[in-house]
Structure formats: structure tokens, C-alpha cells
Write a protein that binds this DNA or RNA. Structure first.
Length: 459
DNA sequence: GAGGCCTTCAC
DNA sequence: TGAAGGCCT
């Protein structure tokens, strides 16, 4: 009786799962394993919102496996140790897993290789599970270039590349009876959860993505920047935990066709783009991809302003609305992410790492590749070719929240102001303004802009 | 085919 | 400003 282990990581699904497919094809029995990784906790990636979502995902994965005659084996500890232990318990001849991208994932793979080498068990690392194309699957033509540093040429090449057909979910999964499992983690007892946190799990992810294809995809191109309309897919947490397959999403969107589908596929490609940058350049998670010689503000004033930013009391309604959405839902509209990140890094001139840390603390889709590199993109230290552009929060608010409905939804103390006037409470007559308990702007935009230009040495 | 130069273009 | 790609040597 041959046994293969499938080590689940950021790929908590049964549909379109190449490691599971390969394991089932090559062994009589499959041991599906998830390790609650002490290393992830130690690295600070175990923020409460994601732990809650993860608990949903694991429960749903276990149910899905049980419906197919199997179960999920949960262990806690060091990944390499736990996999090694399960190999001994089951006599498994191979371990199948998805390729990771971050420095952490790369070290994990090395340690697994060492451990499995000692017990004579093979390790099969599968590409294009977490991303649509593997990092490095397409590279620019020049000699020695290992990744694309500009999105558009990457997108062109990425689009030309053939896509594998998605795998069906297996009908049955035979799991060896012996190995014990730790209890499934639950949401119970987790502190600091966002009250409006989304539900995790592959079942929920597939329900959401089917609804998205029916009702959202076709109008995505016109509506994706409408903050009040909330017409983005909200699939990002499911992509982060792998409860949805990016390859399957692209496949289905292309089948649907049309400008909405094209725009959506482009966004999925951004995800691959950032993963291939990080895979080639793991240090970009912490250090400037392209240094602009910034000397970010530090000290009391900068700390107070950063606290106001985190708590949604900067006095700029659209910024505060977005930051409160983040606190409440553990998620933020993409346009709002750009505005709030520009505000912190350009207007307040505070280090992007402080913002990225706060986002990772709360975002249920918080992902090293996307989060860090998008922050760098906005800060101008990343791959943006216009590193010194500053987004004006008022102009942007009027463009992307033209009626002010997004602000009124998240900043209830301003709900009495109708129309776009809600974006500039400081322009209200003094007596009317006094009715609203809302802070003065933490900084004047003109001051922020001047400080930024000075710091970056711009005329 | 490696490397320099030029044009094009960047959510 | 700098990346990419085409073209030339």
C-alpha cells in the first residue's frame, strides 16, 4: 500500500490542486496534512483576522475531505519536523506541496528537503498552484535577467503564455487510518478580530466567485474604482489562502470574455507580477526595491500622525473612511488602499514599512508579495515608473466617491453632510462645522507636498 | 550571441 | 527616469 503526503500551505482547496492530483495519481493512499506552523507565529504573520479565516478554511477543507471518504490531518509545530514524523508514521514515499515564494517559504522548502532526504522520502514541489504562472516562467529577454521589473511587458508575456486546464476536485480520497490529528482550530478565543470579517473556506470562496462571475465581472472595468459601489470581487482573501485557484479564475474569466473579464484578469496578473518580483528578490519584503535615498520622518509628530492614520482620525474623510473600513472588516477597497498608502508615505512622509506592518496586522488577505510590493509601488521605492507622484486625497475622493457615500458609510459623524461636500468639512461655514465632532486635518496638503518634494530633491 | 544604442512607453 | 525590446555591430 503506497502512501503520499500532501502538505497544504496557502492552497487550502480540493479543486484545481496539482499536488493533490499528483499524489492521488501516484499512491494508493493520501495523507492530507496541514501544520499549524510555530515559525509563522514567530515571524508575526499570524494576525488574528487571518487566523480566524484560516480556521474557517481548515474546517471546510476537512469537511470536503470527509465527504470524499477522507479527513484532514492537523499537526502543530515545526513544519519539517512534523512532516518527517508523518512520513515515519505512514511510510510515505513522497511529499507533494505547492511552491512558495517568500523568503520564509524558500527556507521552509530547504528544511523539508533536508529532513526528507534523511528518511529517503521524495519531495515534489508543484508550480502554478499559488500563482497562475510560476515565478520565472516568463523572463525578459536580456542576459542575466531573472524577473520583470515593469508590469506592462510582464503582462504582455504572461498573457501569451498557455494556461494549464484546471483539475477537477477528486471524487474520493483514501487516507491512512493510523495517524492522529490535532483538533481543528476555531475562531473561538481569538482576540482583536474585526467585527465584519469575511468567512473563509473553499465552499464560501466558490460561492463568492460564482456570484462574482454572474453579477460583477461584466461591469468590473467601469465599476472597479467606485469605492461606494463596492464592486470589486472581494476574492483576495480566497486567493491568499488558496481556497480559490488563480489559474481556474483566469480560465473562467477568459471563457466569459469581455472588457470586465480582461480588466479582472489583469488584476490577477498583478498578483503574479508581485510574486515573481519577490521570488527573485526576497529582500524586497523589507528593503527598498529601488532606493530613493529617503530619510523618512521619525519622532513624536510623525508617530502621532501615524497613529491618527491607523485609527482613522486624520481629518481627511476619505482616508479616515478607508482606515476604519480596514479596522472593521479586515479588508479595504483597492482604490482606498492606494489613497491611504499615498497619504502615509507621500503626504506624511512616513516609512512605507510602518504602513505595510499595520496592513499586515489587519488585512485578511495580507500577503507578503502583494502587500509589501504594493506599498513599495505607492511609496515610489518599488516598480512604479513615476515614483514621485502624490495622490491628492480630496481630488481622488471626488473622482472615486463622487457622491460621498463611501465616506458617510464609514465616518458616521459626518453622515449629516450630503453630497461631495463631505470630502471637505473644513470648507463648511464655521457654525455648521461645529455640529460635527470630527478632527481638523492632521497636516495641510500643501505642506506635505512641499516637504516631500524637498526630501526627494524635486524642484 | 553578447553587448551597446536607440526608441518607446509607463494603471 | 528607467525598463524593455528591437536593431545593429
Amino acid at each position: 500500500m503506497s502512501v503520499a503526503i500532501v502538505l497544504f500551505t496557502s492552497d487550502l482547496r480540493l479543486h484545481d490542486h496539482p499536488p493533490l492530483h499528483a499524489a492521488l495519481a501516484s499512491a494508493d493512499e493520501v495523507a492530507p496534512l496541514f501544520v499549524l506552523d510555530d515559525g509563522v507565529e514567530a515571524a508575526g504573520f499570524g494576525a488574528p483576522n487571518r487566523r480566524a479565516f484560516l480556521a474557517d478554511c481548515l474546517r471546510d477543507l476537512d469537511s470536503g475531505l470527509r465527504e470524499r471518504g477522507g479527513r484532514l490531518i492537523i499537526r502543530q509545530g515545526d513544519v519539517a519536523d512534523e512532516v518527517g514524523r508523518l512520513v515515519e508514521e505512514t511510510g510515505a514515499g513522497a511529499v507533494h506541496m505547492a511552491a512558495g515564494v517568500s523568503g520564509y517559504a524558500q527556507r521552509r522548502e530547504e528544511r523539508l528537503r533536508e529532513t526528507l532526504g534523511r528518511v529517503g522520502c521524495g519531495l515534489n514541489v508543484h508550480d502554478a498552484v499559488i500563482t497562475t504562472l510560476a515565478p520565472g516562467a516568463v523572463v525578459p529577454s536580456g542576459a542575466g535577467r531573472d524577473h520583470f521589473a515593469v508590469f506592462t511587458p510582464y503582462f504582455r508575456r504572461w498573457s501569451e503564455e498557455g494556461l494549464r486546464s484546471p483539475f477537477q476536485a477528486p471524487r474520493t480520497v483514501r487516507v491512512p487510518e493510523g495517524p492522529a490529528s490535532a483538533a481543528l482550530p476555531t475562531r473561538t478565543g481569538l482576540r482583536g478580530l474585526s467585527p465584519g470579517l469575511a468567512e473563509g473556506g473553499e465552499t464560501e470562496g466558490r460561492r463568492l466567485s460564482a456570484a462574482w462571475r454572474r453579477h460583477g465581472l461584466a461591469s468590473y472595468e467601469e465599476r472597479h474604482d467606485d469605492m461606494a459601489g463596492d464592486a470589486t470581487s472581494r476574492l483576495s482573501p480566497h486567493l491568499h489562502f488558496g481556497t480559490l485557484s488563480p489559474a481556474e479564475l483566469v480560465h473562467r474569466a477568459r471563457a466569459a470574455g469581455g472588457p470586465g473579464a480582461d480588466a479582472f484578469v489583469r488584476q490577477v496578473c498583478w498578483r503574479d507580477f508581485h510574486h515573481q518580483v519577490l521570488a527573485a528578490h526576497p529582500a524586497a519584503a523589507r528593503s527598498d526595491y529601488r532606493s530613493r535615498q529617503d530619510r523618512w520622518r521619525t519622532g513624536r509628530a510623525a508617530e502621532d500622525e501615524t497613529a491618527a492614520w491607523r485609527e482613522g482620525r486624520t481629518g481627511y474623510p476619505v482616508i479616515d473612511a478607508a482606515m476604519r473600513q480596514l479596522l472593521h472588516e479586515g479588508w479595504m477597497h483597492n482604490r482606498a488602499r492606494l489613497l491611504t498608502a499615498s497619504f502615509l508615505t507621500k503626504t506624511l512622509y512616513v516609512d512605507w514599512r510602518a504602513g505595510a506592518r499595520h496592513f499586515l496586522e489587519l488585512l485578511v488577505d495580507g500577503d507578503i508579495a502583494n502587500n509589501q510590493l504594493n506599498w513599495q509601488w505607492v511609496a515610489g521605492t518599488g516598480t512604479d515608473s513615476r515614483p514621485n507622484r502624490v495622490l491628492n486625497p480630496v481630488t481622488q475622493a471626488k473622482r472615486y466617491d463622487p457622491d460621498g457615500a463611501y465616506v458617510r458609510r464609514w465616518v458616521p459623524e459626518l453622515a449629516g453632510i450630503s453630497g461631495p461636500a463631505v470630502h471637505e468639512p473644513w470648507r463648511l461655514p464655521e457654525r455648521e462645522r461645529a455640529r460635527y465632532d470630527y478632527p481638523e486635518p492632521v497636516v495641510q496638503l500643501s505642506e506635505g507636498l512641499a516637504r516631500f518634494k524637498e526630501a526627494r530633491g524635486l524642484g
